[in-house]
Amino acid sequence: MLKVNEYFGGSVKSIALENEEGTATIGVMEAGEYEFGTATIELMTITSGSLDVLLPGETDWKVFETGSTFRVEKDVRFKVKAAGQVAYYCLYI
């Protein structure tokens, strides 16, 4: 069963699925700055656009372009900034 998620007043939307790789979401976000929390390790791949990411414990923002992946550990918070619309695939492990 697919599950639709909506955050930040509709500025971030995703569809969750479960398959042989595990649980994942495919989503989009409008331009803006957002903070997320994790319950599992997350591998996020940018599929369209560019995303600035501030990972826990870091002081410098890192830019992730289309095709790049970053890892976020379990039970932490991280920030992202999108200058334009961004699409992503997030695998929860």
Rank of each mutant, 00 (worst) to 15 (best):
T47F: 09
T38D: 03
A24E: 04
G27S: 03
V53W: 03
V28P: 01
V86P: 00
V63A: 07
G9R: 07
G84M: 02
T38Q: 06
V80Q: 04
E42Q: 02
G9Y: 08
F36L: 05
N5Y: 13
E30F: 06
K13P: 05
T59N: 15
V63K: 07
P56S: 14
E20Q: 12
K81E: 11
L91P: 00
T40I: 05
V76I: 09
V86T: 04
L55N: 03
E58D: 14
M1I: 08
K3C: 09
E73Y: 11
A31T: 12
V63L: 09
E65M: 11
T25H: 09
G67R: 03
E20L: 12
W61C: 11
E42D: 09
A87M: 12
F8Y: 13
I93N: 13
Y7L: 13
D75V: 05
L55F: 01
Y92G: 05
I46R: 00
M44L: 14
T66I: 02
I41F: 06
G57Y: 03
G57M: 01
C90G: 08
E6H: 12
M29E: 02
W61T: 10
D75Y: 14
R71Y: 10
E58Y: 14
T69D: 00
A24K: 04
L17E: 10
A24T: 00
K62Q: 06
T47I: 08
T47W: 04
K62E: 06
L54C: 14
Y7S: 12
D52N: 14
A24G: 05
D52G: 11
V80P: 00
E42V: 00
T38F: 06
E30Q: 08
S68P: 09
G27Y: 06
I15Y: 04
Y7H: 14
P56T: 15
E33W: 06
V63Q: 07
T69K: 07
R77Y: 13
G10W: 09
A24D: 01
I26F: 12
A82Y: 02
D60W: 05
K79R: 15
A82S: 11
E33K: 15
A16Y: 06
K81P: 07
E73I: 10
T38R: 06
G67F: 03
I93K: 14
G27R: 05
V12T: 01
K62D: 02
G10Y: 06
N19E: 09
